[in-house]
């Protein structure tokens, strides 16, 4: 018994001469189209570049009103930015404030560490000792004698 494939192919075998013609035609077209290919590939880059440039210029020309509008908006933003300057920041005051805060924090940390290590808190003065003002020797002697 014939398979469905055999039946189908046998039924359409009459179309083969026409299919041969089609095949020949497509092959002829293929060989014709294949020939000028190398000639075209010699200068593809400049052509591509110029076409891209032309496209970009065309796009800019078409959107020139939008570009001008956007430019104006940016100019306005820049103008307002320059017209309202920020108040100057006192750097030295800020540095001083941060310095004293840092010192206080360090002292606090030391105190906490001392507590943890059961060390006498008195060893860590809360404030740095004030340097004694130099006095004349005669005054020093008088104070010792009275003591």
């Amino acid at each position: 018994m014939k398979t469905p494939r055999d039946i189908l192919l046998a039924r359409h075998r009459a179309a083969e001469p026409k299919l041969d013609q089609i095949r020949a035609g497509v092959l002829a077209e293929l060989t014709v189209n294949a020939r000028p290919e190398p000639r075209r590939s010699r200068t593809p880059e400049p052509r591509k570049f110029f076409s891209t440039l032309r496209f970009a210029l065309g796009l800019l020309r078409a959107l020139r009103l939008n570009a001008v509008g956007l430019g104006c908006v940016w100019l306005l933003i820049l103008f307002f930015k320059l017209a309202t300057p920020e108040p100057p920041i006192n750097n030295s005051a800020r540095a001083l404030a941060s310095g004293s805060a840092l010192q206080a924090a360090m002292v606090e940390q030391q105190r906490l560490l001392a507590e943890l290590g059961e060390l006498p808190v008195s060893r860590f003065p809360k404030e740095a000792p004030k340097a004694a003002a130099p006095r004349p020797r005669s005054e020093q002697r008088a104070s010792h004698a009275s003591a």
Binding site: L8, L9, A15, E16, L19, D20
Partner: peptide, 8 residues
């Protein structure tokens, strides 16, 4: 190879 099966 494919012309007839394709046509069918």
């Amino acid at each position: 190879r494919y012309q007839l099966p394709l046509y069918v």
